[in-house]
């Protein structure tokens, strides 16, 4: 187990290196001239000499691979450079925006489970009932609904009509529940179906019939014997859902005017703020790779029959 984890962590290094190389090459190929962008922030109308001076000062006139290694050296120490926009360190920008995104992701996750688990369980227990059919329609609509449209409609309903949330967003970093709900919309159908299918299958097993024969109360059978086994596939999917929630928050953040990392990244694209963009991409990729490792480990921890190798 420990050997497996160490091996996986070592395997992460080439992957992350590949991401940094790709990132760096793409940034260098991009149309924007970094020296000019910095110069335009510093001086009003930079002359060619001033741009060249900044190019020399920032080391942008050196060969590409030298630039890459000096950049990588700094990145490893957490120095992604200063944001062209605000002049603050890029990492700090990301750090200050992260809590909002984390709050949004956690709220969405809790809401997702709070709605999907009961719906999934009831539609599995009462298979082919009216409730099951209605839930199926809901699942189907949920995967066809664009989160950004639902977000806009809910913002209109709760922000403009009912005046319960702010349309222009607040500075408090408070995340409205409707924002979390909109972000969840595409996942409802996926999770409900997963629970429904998996619980339905485990309720057909022989040991469930044995439990029934013994006279154990139905809810206890479902909860203790059925759910325990059917939650395994669900719990392992949770990590990939968390990844999607963390990385896919930009749409919802832009609708509800939340200042999270997704909104920050979008801003960096429009402003050609390369340090912030690079910081976002590298940190998020590292988080994704780590979370995937966590998923594999938890898979084996929950179900001992699965061996890690």
């Amino acid at each position: 187990m420990i050997r497996y984890v160490i091996k996986r962590i070592i395997l992460m290094i080439p992957v992350m290196l590949a991401v940094t190389v790709l990132m760096f090459i793409l940034s260098s190929l991009s149309a924007g001239d970094s020296a000019r962008i910095i110069a335009e922030k510093t001086y009003n109308a930079p002359t060619q000499e001033q741009i060249e001076e900044i190019r020399h000062r920032e080391g942008l006139d050196k060969p590409l691979f030298q630039q890459y290694f000096s950049w990588l050296g700094k990145v490893v120490q957490g120095d992604f450079g200063e944001s062209y926009n605000t002049g603050r360190p890029a990492l700090q920008e990301l750090q200050s925006a992260f809590p909002v995104t984390l709050r949004l992701a956690l709220k969405s996750l809790v809401l997702l489970l709070a709605i999907s688990v009961p719906l999934g369980v009831f539609s599995a227990v009462y298979e082919n009932s009216l409730f099951d059919k209605i839930t199926e329609v809901f699942s189907f609509l949920s995967v066809s609904m664009p989160a950004f449209w639902l977000g806009l409609m809910l913002l209109y309903l709760f922000g403009v009509k009912l005046r319960m949330i702010s349309v222009i967003g607040g500075t408090s970093g408070e995340v409205p529940l409707v924002a979390a709900f909109s972000m969840d919309i595409g996942f409802f159908g996926v999770v409900i179906r997963m629970i429904r299918v998996s619980l339905r299958d485990s309720l057909k097993q022989d040991y469930i019939r044995a439990c029934k024969a013994k006279g154990i109360p139905v809810w206890k059978i479902i909860w203790k014997h059925g759910m325990k086994n059917s939650l395994i596939p669900v719990s392992t999917k949770i990590v990939s859902i968390v990844i999607s929630l963390l990385c896919g928050s930009a749409v919802i953040e832009s609708i509800f005017s939340l200042n999270g990392i997704g909104a920050l990244a979008l801003e960096a694209v429009t402003a050609k703020d390369t340090p912030v963009l690079q910081c976002f991409i590298l940190i998020l990729s590292a988080v994704v790779v780590l979370l995937n490792l966590l998923a594999d480990i938890s898979y084996s921890a929950i179900d001992r029959r699965i061996q890690l190798k």
């Binding site: 992957v15 590949a18 790709l22 990132m23 793409l26 940034s27 190929l29 991009s30 149309a31 990844i243 999607s244 990385c247 896919g248 930009a250 997704g262 990244a265 979008l266 960096a268 694209v269 050609k272 390369t274 963009l277 976002f280 991409i281 998020l284 990729s285 994704v288 790779v289 995937n292």
Partner: peptide, 21 residues
């Protein structure tokens, strides 16, 4: 496996941020 792990938003962002949207 590497490509399966990459969230589409990160890839779209990297491409749009460097090659333009």
């Amino acid at each position: 496996d590497i490509f399966m792990a990459l969230p589409s938003f990160i890839v779209a962002l990297a491409i749009a941020g460097t090659l333009g949207a």
